[in-house]
Write a protein that binds this DNA or RNA. Structure first.
Lengths: 230, 230
DNA sequence: CCTTGTCAAGAGCAGTGCTCTCGAATGTGT
DNA sequence: ACACATTCGAGAGCACTGCTCTTGACAAGG
């Protein structure tokens, strides 16, 4: 059994090394990851890689899950680092800046999880659990404010269509009991806008348009914090 | 000269046919467009395609420019179709729904221009002119409102950092003279959010989360219209 | 008519994902 | 300790890719 675990450990180390090299290739060459190139860097022949990953998609899936967990770690840590838990705006800015910071530090992995999906690739449910960590962290900030009574339900703005109210209520009931739908809706809007802002910057749509990236991002996050009421 | 033009015309027709087939392949197989497959569908051999496009990137660039112009046409037409030009909110909703409608109708082309950039592919300046049409149309709605005096400069919300105010002023001066920076900023935020909302839906991040897509989108657009003050 | 420019075809190169087979090494049960 | 079973890496090979270069056919223009 200890021998079985030594095999398992060496195997796990191989898998980690393959993923590490694959991440390097991803950062260098973008999404078109070559198994043969990874194998070359490992000093192996390409067919040997198939002992560890059934195919290229499997390797990509592993990288995707890792990426989701990596950005999830970053954002949760950034939120946790704010000592005054009642400073909702401070937590919001810390968490959103962590998203952008992680994206700028790991552009290829960001593109992997938030860019155009690879054609023919269907993300397994496995990825969803990891994917939900960032938006959950963001909405939790709002839920904390609503729960402590310091964040009022927005009274202005468009009324929620029944169909939207219904799907939001279902999300609320499973994760954020007691959170008003209107606040959840604004949280989702802010999360979608955050994703848009980071993607815009990373995918080059701000080139020759906005130069003061950091300041512009900060301003946007403050604006969305206002929208939520934080 | 008429013979030269007959040659040129046949050549132009060939180029159009290649692009049409390439678009079909793009829609079917996603971004990994195969020149050989396109050539097969044209009844030609792959090398013959190189008479019309220097390489695969050139073909992609042509498709990108076409896509930008296609969505630009859609959005401009949708805005123009609103007869009451003073109905800013109506124009806003028409234009933004046109963006989403075009994206849902042409998902592959949307991913081509708004998804993760192809690694090693640098978009030529040529694409920028076409790319600017949609955001210009959106901001023009705001500028029309500000110009006619019916859209006040937002007085609440975070103040613009000087660096942001500066870059916004430069954009304003070249395209929307007289538009207050604060309004331009909110227009850009709304445009970025719109891009995020459409991308989120199209790239599958709403799967198993939000089902009432159309209603949710509409609600979001109303919320952003409120943010602008429209 | 004959030159000139344009075009498609074919062969070929280097690369890709993936499969299959074959030894060699390594851990497991008796 | 020895035989068995499993795991692993290497290699060959298939079908595919983008791209280049050469060759031969054809049509337009002088």
């Amino acid at each position: 059994m200890s021998s079985a675990s030594i095999r398992a450990r060496v195997r796990a180390e191989m898998i980690e090394e393959i993923k590490a090299i694959a991440r390097r290739h991803l950062a260098a060459d973008g999404a078109n990851l070559s198994l043969r190139a990874v194998a070359r860097d490992m000093g192996m022949v390409s067919s040997a890689l198939y002992r560890y990953f059934a195919n290229r998609d499997d390797l990509l899936t592993a990288l995707i899950v890792d990426a989701y967990n990596s950005i999830g770690d970053s954002v949760e840590a950034a939120d946790a680092r704010v000592t005054n838990r009642d400073d909702l705006r401070g937590r919001w800015l810390a968490a959103t800046h962590a998203v952008r910071g992680w994206a700028l530090a790991n552009p290829a992995e960001y593109a992997l999880i938030f860019g155009s999906p690879v054609p023919g690739y269907a993300a397994p449910q496995l990825t969803a659990d990891a994917a939900v960590r960032v938006p959950t962290t963001l909405v939790r900030i709002i839920a904390d404010g609503a729960g402590s009574g310091r964040l009022p339900t927005p009274r202005h703005g468009p009324r929620l269509p029944p169909a939207v109210r219904e799907v939001l209520a279902r999300i609320r009931d499973t994760t954020f009991p007691g959170l008003p739908e209107a606040l959840l809706a604004r949280g989702m809007v802010a999360w979608i806008h955050l994703f848009g802002a980071v993607s815009f910057e990373l995918f080059g749509h701000l080139n020759n348009v906005i130069e003061a990236r950091e300041e512009f991002f900060e301003h946007q996050m403050r604006l969305m914090a206002d929208l939520i009421g934080i």
